[in-house]
Amino acid sequence: MNNIALPDAVVSVRDLAKRYGAFEALRGVSFDIHRGETFALLGPNGAGKSTTIEILEGYRDRSSGAASVLGTDPQSGGLEWKSRLGIVLQSTGEQGDVTVRDQLAHFASLYPNPRGVDETIAAVGLADKARTRIRALSGGQRRRVDVALGIIGRPELLFLDEPTTGFDPEARQQFWSLVHQLKAEGTTILLTTHYLDEAAQLSDRAAVIAGGELVAIGAIDEIGGAEARVPLVRWTEGGTRHTERTRTPAGTVASLSARLGAEPTDLEIYRPSLEDIYLDLVRENAEAAAAEIDADGPTSPTTRPSATDPITEGASA
């Protein structure tokens, strides 16, 4: 498993599997993340996103398969390795008895080449909260502290696990511009998010995980295949809604308009968004899984005990 990495791959995963007892949280997941790339990992709750990201961060051990992160097996990553990572975990419940500035200054001291503390606080938009205790911040503001702690060490590889949960729209926009700056610096980023517009806005490539398996991977404007992106023309005729998939929507509208001899009612030309494509992928996977369970009977070992990601504490059970 030492030689699986491509020369420019910052993260390499081959046939990754994770089992909790009889439950297979991940099965045969393989992908690479290239240097400087922003890679989004998408999928419903409980699909295996967090399990994957936590295996790569070194928090969980894999059951089988191979993984390489910055050229190191994350199961045996040492301090030198950790100093090159930035980790923004899903939200935590720390006490927060220190001020934003004290917390950032302390974490900066753990890294060999940290960013400036005030500069980082300003970059996440908390300059006017620098002297406030973290416990007194709102949820969205605390999340910004998490992001600041993730980037304070000037990481080569940054993990962002649902980073914008609890952000207001303005904070999300600001966060996006911060990520664009980090990308411009050459930071490689692995992002999970439930906001498909965020994934489309920030990432170069994406993978969709559903039911513990990788169901699609590709450039953000190609994922799901060309067929899924064919535009739709919709209009209302005689009280019913019509939809036509076509590669030549302008021609379709022209001939429709000629045929009707009038302006078509409620006309729209619709190009499927990443969200539409994603939802189709997840739906197809769920239908396939349901068919599989029907075939196997209700005792299939892939039946999942809960619909949520295994959380840290629960995972010890």
Binding site: Y59, K82, S83, L89, T92, E94, L110, Y111, G153
Partner: peptide, 8 residues
């Protein structure tokens, strides 16, 4: 968990 992800 947060400290575990740092080089402390």
């Amino acid at each position: 968990k947060r400290l575990a992800g740092t080089p402390l």
